[in-house]
Design a protein around this nucleic acid. Structure first.
Lengths: 216, 216, 216, 216
DNA sequence: TATGAATGAGCATTCATTCAT
DNA sequence: TATGAATGAATGCTCATTCAT
């Protein structure tokens, strides 16, 4: 029934916004390490250097906490990509820059990627959220392809475009996953490889074609 | 006089192998629905129509049970693909048959696919297993590409091939995932689309190129 | 993760029905002592000489457990009263026997009475249940009074009867409460007193009237 | 220059006594709605429009707060009744006025009644307090009866009187309870009914006797 | 005075796992 | 073989209470 607060002088009473970020950092880390279910609120709180009730006070129960992680990481990623792939570039350049930003993000936020991608997919309560996010990505890419087609005066059934975009997203995710597991790998190079597959296709690659970044 | 264990005609003392398959069926179903952690041994036992101690007696603790599921589904899938993509076919035909078999399998075993792909990826204790399996797939595909290259008297660094193969596998997984979530979708058509992206690449698709199965 | 079952040879694996009664006994005792909220499932389990999961397995969560207690005690009480107050007796005799059975029950099951009456009334989730039970009692008593009236060729508005019955029930509850708190008090005597107030009223009592049981 | 604590006109630095009443109001409301244990200090503070530490500063920990509620409501009720039932009236008139005041109070302070009666009874830590208060009421009523007896030159054992008084109090509580649950019911009428049962008893009521207030 | 920030401690509930029959 | 009975060990969540500002 007693509650004795630490008298450690190094202890700081931080404003809410700061503590929330600390908590999210810890949560992303722990969720990524253990998976959603195996992650315990105890470990997250401890890792954040704060007591459990504060986590609940600020970010709510476990599910909400996970969703908050998702949102933060997702926003960061989308911003990184959207900031790089300006809409007025030619399609291949746009795709290239987007991919570079994407792999750059994954390389720099491996934990975030794990939470976003691996954990979310397997947990029924959140799978829907992920599907929605991915659908947005797919739409953007499909739109990109569509623009390119129209510029050539051609057209393709929307479903086809969507499925193609799905495949591209999937391939990128897979490489990102590989990147997250290989800390020594170079994001830039991974992006280049992805661009080759995506743009040229296995057929042309076999024929010896190569795509190279204009600036590298 | 004979000793009768039970006179209830509904009661069946099934041979071990059959019982094990029933349990695995139930386990795959429940794991797929709930995810590894959220799945309870109680539900699995009940779904298998058997008591919990029997599950333990036959397949061991939860982890072992999950691994057993993984193995069974994985074996089935690899057999399906390997049986279709005969090594003496030309590379595009081989790829095409492999993809067709793959999507056919996913369409027919959605639960198995979910366990294999979604659940396993998010659960740290098993992620390694999945990585190993996928590495085998990647190796096969990379080998396929390598064969094609050598046939043309050309060569590519192994790492590059591997990454390309990774991308192809990832794209397939992504479409498979989409297929698993869209019960009305046609596996055959999905395979065709995948083949187009994989073989021709986005660049050529934009130019209007199309790949079509020889037999359809 | 280990679960080692006691090897104490005095330990007995009891059939479900027995264990359930033990649990209910313990629960009634603890609820009565502590009140619904302050009672912990731990204490109940320990008092029942069994582990918590068994309580949950057999009787469900705390709320259900409490309701089960209510039901058992209520049934016992109603049976005791109904068995005593045969409908073919004259009204005063019937009332008298009912009261005697009631106070007898309370004297013999003080814990049960506390759960039934004190705890239930204060806890919003269960107050409704108690109200329903009491309404049944009231109805019975009102019916008894009504019979007596009709036998005299007279009639009273139903609401009035109901309120009178309410008052009688309340007075009995209050005395029961007093009885439960005074372990040395005699249930029989308490019943007699209650009968005096109920039947004669304060006015006549002041005038010196006395009601006495025919058989005592 | 004057030091201004706040320029916000909505902000009011209220005198301590007022603040305390606000808090008690909130506490009574919340305790009545939720019950002692289920009521949270958070909700009480919020309902009082003040921060939690203030509640502690003014009224101490939860137990003290509840006791304060009890005291206030109890005092109010006793004052209402004592003010109405002047000791120089004839016994029936005195009883009648007391009952009228009592039911009037309950009708006007349903929350207070609930705290006083329902919550307190179920919570072991406070049950004693309630018993004491009720004992005072009982004593008063018993005294009233005793006066009436002596006026007739008669006498009854004290215990008997006490038990009778207990029954009357209990009956009143029960009707009060009913009244608190039926917001449309008329306190005056309820008092009349109670008076009938109390004064005449079931026996006479069956015979057709009726008691009516002199002034109504 | 007044409050946001903080916590120790407890509690209901569930689950994988095993024993005795 | 087959299962009902049983439990240790967590884990999510809440609450009364207090400190630092």
């Amino acid at each position: 029934m007693l509650a004795r607060v630490s008298t450690n002088p190094a202890f700081k009473r931080l404003p809410r916004a700061v503590r929330e970020q600390q908590m999210l950092d810890a949560a992303v880390k722990v969720f990524s390490r253990r998976g959603y279910h195996a992650a315990s609120m105890d470990e997250i709180a401890e890792d954040a250097g704060i007591s459990k009730p504060m986590v609940y006070a600020y970010l709510g129960p476990k599910e909400d906490l996970f969703v908050a992680c998702l949102h933060r990481e997702c926003t960061r990623m989308i911003e990184a990509i959207a900031g790089a792939a300006a809409p007025d570039l030619p399609p291949d350049e746009r795709l290239w820059r987007g991919l570079r930003a994407f792999f750059g993000f994954v390389g720099a936020h491996r934990d975030g990627w794990s939470v976003l991608y691996r954990q979310t997919r397997g947990e029924p309560p959140f799978a829907g959220q992920l599907a929605t996010m991915r659908a947005r990505m797919v739409e953007v890419i499909a739109g990109m392809l569509d623009d390119a087609l129209r510029a050539q005066g051609r057209e393709v059934r929307e479903t086809d475009l969507e499925v193609i975009a799905y495949a591209l997203v999937g391939a990128s995710e897979s490489l990102a996953d590989w990147l997250a597991d290989n800390p020594t790998a170079d994001p830039e190079k991974t992006a280049t490889r992805m661009m080759n597959v995506a743009w040229l296709g296995a057929g042309q690659l076999i024929e010896g074609a190569v795509w190279r970044p204009a600036d590298g």
